[in-house]
C-alpha cells in the first residue's frame, strides 16, 4: 500500500502543490491529472524518492520510503519521461541489463517479450537507430517481466500508437487484477471502463500559499 501524507512540493521557492493526501491500495489504478506545470512529474519524483518532499512523507507498507529505500525499490517500477534506455546498446542488451539489475529472480525470455511489444526483428539493432515509439517500447517492455507490485508510470503512452496503447492498458488491468497497483499520468483519456480506475486531480495551491 502506498500512502502520501501531507505532501508539499516546492520548486525554486514556488509551491507546486501542498497538503496532498492519498492512498493507493492493492488492485487499484490511479490516474493523476492536471494541466501542464501543476507538478505531476514532480509528484512522481517524490513518490519514487528521487527528490525529497519539502513537507510530508511517502509511505510504502506503513514505512517511510526514505528510511528503507532498498525494500521499497524491490517493489517499485518507475518509468519516467526519460526512458532510461541506452542508445548505444541493442534492445536485447538493454532488456538483459534491466532484468539483471531489477528483477534477477524472474525467469523471462527476452525474445518473447520483444515480440509482445512489437519489436520482433529489431532485437539486435542499437536502440539509437529505432524510432521514438520503438525506443519507448523497449522501456515499456520492462512491465512484462516486472514482479514489482507498484508501477509508477509517467506518461507511458507518449509516442505509442493506438494499438500499442490498447495492449498496455490490458496489461495494466491484468496487473491490477493480480493485486498490483498502478499510478500513471496520460494526456489522452484512458480507454478503460471508468469503474476500473480512480482519478486524482492536482490543484494549484491557494492564492496565499504560492510561495514558501
Amino acid at each position: 500500500m502506498l500512502q502520501c501524507k501531507n505532501l508539499t512540493c516546492v520548486r525554486e521557492e514556488r509551491v507546486l502543490f501542498n497538503n496532498l493526501n492519498f492512498t493507493l491500495a492493492p488492485g487499484e489504478i490511479l490516474q493523476v491529472e492536471g494541466p501542464n506545470g501543476v507538478g505531476k512529474t514532480s509528484l512522481f519524483r517524490l513518490l519514487v524518492g528521487l527528490s525529497t518532499p519539502y513537507e510530508g512523507e511517502v509511505h510504502w507498507q506503513h514505512q517511510s520510503i526514505a528510511l528503507d529505500r532498498d525494500a521499497y525499490y524491490q517493489n517499485m517500477l518507475y518509468l519516467g519521461h526519460k526512458s532510461g534506455v541506452k542508445p548505444e546498446l541493442t534492445a536485447l542488451e538493454n532488456l538483459h541489463y534491466f532484468h539483471q539489475l531489477f528483477n534477477p529472480k524472474v525467469e523471462f525470455d527476452a525474445w518473447e517479450i520483444l515480440t509482445l511489444v512489437g519489436l520482433a526483428g529489431y532485437e539486435n539493432v542499437p536502440t539509437a537507430q529505432l524510432s521514438a515509439g520503438q525506443q519507448r517500447r523497449v522501456a515499456l517492455a520492462r512491465m512484462w517481466f516486472s514482479d514489482c507490485p507498484l508501477w509508477i508510470l509517467d506518461e507511458p503512452f507518449t509516442a505509442i500508437d493506438k494499438n500499442g496503447v490498447q495492449v498496455i492498458e490490458k496489461l495494466l488491468i491484468k496487473h491490477a487484477e493480480k493485486g498490483g497497483m498502478v499510478i500513471l499520468t496520460t494526456h489522452q483519456d484512458l480507454l478503460l471502463p471508468p469503474q476500473l480506475y480512480k482519478k486524482l486531480t492536482l490543484q494549484k495551491p491557494a492564492a496565499g500559499e504560492q510561495y514558501v
Binding site: D70, Y73, P87, L101, F102
Partner: peptide, 15 residues
C-alpha cells in the same frame, strides 16, 4: 543523466 539511465540506476534495489 540525459537518457534517464542514471535515475533508473538510483532506483535499483541495490545500495
Amino acid at each position: 543523466f540525459i537518457d534517464g539511465s542514471l535515475e533508473q540506476m538510483m532506483l535499483a534495489p541495490q545500495p
